[in-house]
Simulated scan of single mutants.
Amino acid sequence: MASVTPSYDRDGEHIGWQVAVRKRGFPAQYKTFRTKAEAMGWAAVTESEMVRGVFVQRTESEQTTLNDLLCRYSKEVLPTLKGGYREQSRIKALQAGLGAYSLASLNSSLIAKYRDSRLSTISEKTGRLVSAQTVKHELGLLQRAMKMAAIEWGIALPGGIPTAMVKKPSLPSARDRRLVDDEEERLLAACAEARNAWLRPVIIFAIETAMRAGEILEKWELDKETGNQEKKGVGLQWSDVDLKKRTAHLPKTKNGDARTVPLSRRAVATLEALPRNLDGRVFGVTYEGIHQSYVRACRRAGITGLTFHDLRHEATSRLFEKGLNPMQVAAITGHKTLQMLKRYTHLRAEDLAKLLG
């Protein structure tokens, strides 16, 4: 049964109405309202939910703001994730837009408004509109944090996880740039003319293995808070290469899982021709050192619109064209789902026609 009693302040002034709902099998519920009608309405809804077996304890979700949740997620979860530092900018954006709301008050309408607002915001970093991919990552982070709150931290969300009901921004079509005609020969010829002697073997190795730039080369990134360059990847190490077995082991990858990449004969020949660095790196150059050389080589070769990451697209597609099945290709490239793999795979119709006989 619910009881509604007047509530007074220290001076004896009437300030509202306190409700107490007590029902066997449920924790007692208390709440104060300004009017008696609001108090009785809340009591009726709460009792009805208890009777129907759909009652959810709201106290903690009402007292926890999204800002509180994201701070906890940042401290307890991000340090355990590979590349978790990338989530900090997304957390700041979510806190700025939705941080003041309690978890109980967050709904799909508020999140949809946040999505639309972000898509019309100019990024301080790029000077352009915030991309749909960026907003999708932010909503994904919000969903993971709220799921953690509900499942691991025991914070009941009365309306469930609202992000599941919000339409994600439409992404632009996946890049389908591949090497065409004699572009590979022209590119490698231009690389051979480069001052950077590492450029040509790096390009060949990328095409042969489908490895990411950060898996091949040492990589550095600017820490916005400190203004210092920080090493984010050590690149491929000789200690992880077995030329006899024709494998390269990657103990740390972007998705957090280790994997071992099989090496083609061309990849092995490329490695065998390299000088050995005293620091253990296979390629004695950073990604930053390769990038500008690569851009200039493409310019000399008359090749436009081909990014370094497109070489991973090219390599992945060639694996399928050689007849490997999706599971085999995923084991090489490190993609976790077929949908992710599909975005990097662009098969030529003429090559598929040859397989048909």
Rank of each mutant, 00 (worst) to 15 (best):
N67A: 15
P326A: 10
N107D: 15
D242A: 01
L278T: 13
D181A: 15
T80F: 05
G233I: 00
E218L: 06
S48P: 01
P201M: 10
V285W: 02
R299T: 12
P158D: 06
L103F: 09
G25D: 09
Q292T: 14
D181G: 09
R281F: 03
Q95F: 02
A20M: 14
L222M: 15
K342Q: 15
R118H: 03
D279K: 10
E321N: 01
T333M: 06
L319H: 06
Q57D: 15
W17E: 06
R195P: 06
R72Q: 13
L103Y: 02
A267D: 00
G140M: 01
D257P: 01
I161P: 00
T163H: 04
M211I: 00
V130F: 03
G214K: 02
K336P: 01
R175A: 00
Y344S: 03
E218M: 02
T121E: 14
E184D: 05
N325G: 13
I15D: 01
A39T: 00
L70D: 10
E185N: 10
A315T: 08
K224P: 12
L188C: 06
Q133M: 13
Q133W: 12
S48G: 12
R86K: 14
W220N: 07
D223E: 11
L338G: 04
I155P: 05
K31Y: 07
V51T: 15
N196M: 00
R246A: 12
N196R: 01
R318I: 11
K147D: 13
S239V: 08
E87Y: 09
G99T: 12
T286R: 02
Y294D: 00
R178Y: 03
L188E: 02
L69R: 03
Q57G: 12
R24K: 12
I303T: 06
R22S: 15
R312F: 01
L278W: 08
S170H: 11
Q339Y: 05
G84P: 07
A104T: 02
E230A: 11
L141W: 07
S109E: 15
W220M: 10
R58M: 04
L171A: 07
T163K: 02
N67D: 12
L106P: 02
I111V: 14
G302Y: 03
T35V: 11
T163I: 04
R58T: 14
E314K: 12
Q339M: 13
S105G: 12
E13I: 05
D257V: 04
D279H: 10
Q292H: 12
L274S: 03
K82I: 10
K252L: 09
K36I: 04
D116K: 10
R276G: 01
K168Q: 12
E49G: 07
N325H: 10
R90A: 13
E13G: 04
V285N: 02
A190Y: 01
L110N: 11
T337I: 05
K322I: 08
P162Y: 04
G53F: 07
S102K: 09
E76V: 09
A330H: 00
S89M: 14
K231D: 05
G214N: 03
